[in-house]
Amino acid sequence: MACKSHYVDECYAELKQFIEKLPTQKGALIAVLHKAQGIFGFLPEEVQDFVAKELHINPAEVYGVVSFYSFFTMTPKGDTPISICLGTACYVKGAEDIVAEIKEHINLDVGQVSEDGKFSLDAVRCVGACSLAPVVLIKDKVYGRLKKGEIKSILDGYMKGESHENN
């Protein structure tokens, strides 16, 4: 869950508590960042500075790790995050066409958040559900074996505020 602005103090307190409870701070940076992203939803500069201070390391070292790994993000996601799998199995089954359809339909490219903050589109590398290729994840739901045109009606549903049954 992303940290809402009026809970910021509680969020930092939770993170601080997690760090204090670690058996050792040696080598714990990635685990701490996982926790921080879980609390805040993303890792803005202030959070990185906080982690650096608590772990007694240089902020540059924290930034170096955050920017290295694809799992960590410095920008917030949309309310309805869309992840499209661009693993090989999905690629040969036409994942690129789906990216194009999404782009055409809601004017969103990979790596972008829509202006109203409603949707964000990310590419992921293989979710391991290759038999269901091509696969799109919307929020926590997986839509597999997608055919041309299907993604549009799914997105329309989310725009109207309804979600679909997992198929």
Binding site: I30, A31, H34, V65, Y69, S70, F71, R125
Partner: peptide
């Protein structure tokens, strides 16, 4: 268990 963070 050590958890990765997405880097091939």
């Amino acid at each position: 268990i050590k958890i990765g963070a997405g880097a091939f």
